[in-house]
């Protein structure tokens, strides 16, 4: 099938970018979205034009490295799917697709579709962990964990840190990412001692990174490739309020 692409091209962080139109006449429906971009890049290379830079690594939807806005939706139109797992059979002949990088002040564009998401790492470094030094752990079965808590924790822990939530949020808020980590650790008995300080530290770091705030719109939840639920944000709010007010 024939696909028309409009891709954001920007040489580097300093330069202005623009949308550039490309046409791919022979796209197989079995290709993944990124394989289609590979084909485009091969063609561009052969023509002597610089290929499109885009982040990707595992290509099986788990590393969280890939991602772009496809027609204004983070990771494209298929729910619960990263861009690398989106296959061209979900598009039709003649489709025009607009590809843009994640947009947020906290995610500056590096080149073309590549952005800098190191703000996420700094948020985790601020408190997204359980402080246990190697070797000091008790037996794995010393602390039973309710099956339901473990399952809910796992739901939140599935976050791959791709940044789609930020990209899609009209406020460029990182709340779903924050909430996912806060819920993952806060739902487990091991995470209790640092539960409140963790929420406060992570939220404070997110504010320093200049992410927006949550206004409960729910676009993040709709595009999250791992179906992280809005509830985790309520949990973050609860832990934060409890820490700040000593109630809740």
């Amino acid at each position: 099938m024939r696909i028309i692409l409009h891709i954001w091209r920007q040489r580097n962080a300093g330069e202005k970018g623009r949308m550039v139109r490309y046409e791919l006449p022979n796209v197989s429906e079995h290709m993944s979205f990124l394989e289609m971009l590979d084909v485009l890049n091969e063609e561009l290379t052969m023509k002597g034009e610089e290929p499109v830079a885009f982040d990707h690594d595992c290509r099986e939807g788990i590393c969280g490295m890939c991602g772009a806005m496809v027609n204004g939706i983070a990771h494209g139109p298929l729910p619960g799917t990263t861009l690398c797992q989106l296959h061209m059979r979900h598009f039709k002949d003649g489709d025009e697709l607009y590809l843009e990088p994640w947009r947020a002040r906290a995610f500056p564009v590096v080149k073309d579709l590549v952005v800098d998401r190191s703000a996420f790492d700094r948020i985790i470094a601020a408190g997204g962990f359980i402080s246990v030094a190697t070797g000091s752990a008790p037996d794995g079965n010393a602390i039973p964990v309710q099956k339901e808590s473990a399952e809910n924790s796992m739901d939140a822990a599935a976050c791959i840190g791709c940044g789609a939530c930020v990209a899609m949020c009209p406020n460029a808020s990182a709340s779903l990412f924050l909430g996912a980590k806060i819920a993952h650790l806060g739902l487990l008995p091991q995470g209790q001692p640092e539960r409140e300080s963790r929420a406060v530290a992570m939220v404070a770091q997110a504010n320093r990174e200049l992410f927006g705030s949550c206004t409960n719109i729910g676009e993040c939840e709709a595009v999250c490739p791992k179906d992280i639920k809005l509830e985790v944000i309520a949990r973050m709010n609860r832990d934060f309020i409890r820490a700040k007010c000593g109630v809740g």
Binding site: F129, T134, A137, N141, I143, K147, A150, E151, S153
Partner: peptide, 22 residues
């Protein structure tokens, strides 16, 4: 043996039985 202990303590949400054990 130590690896599992370490990972549980870090908050790795391993699958559990209804008893709460691994």
């Amino acid at each position: 043996l130590n690896i599992i202990d370490q990972c549980v303590a870090q908050g790795v949400p391993f699958a559990r039985e209804y008893s709460g054990y691994l």
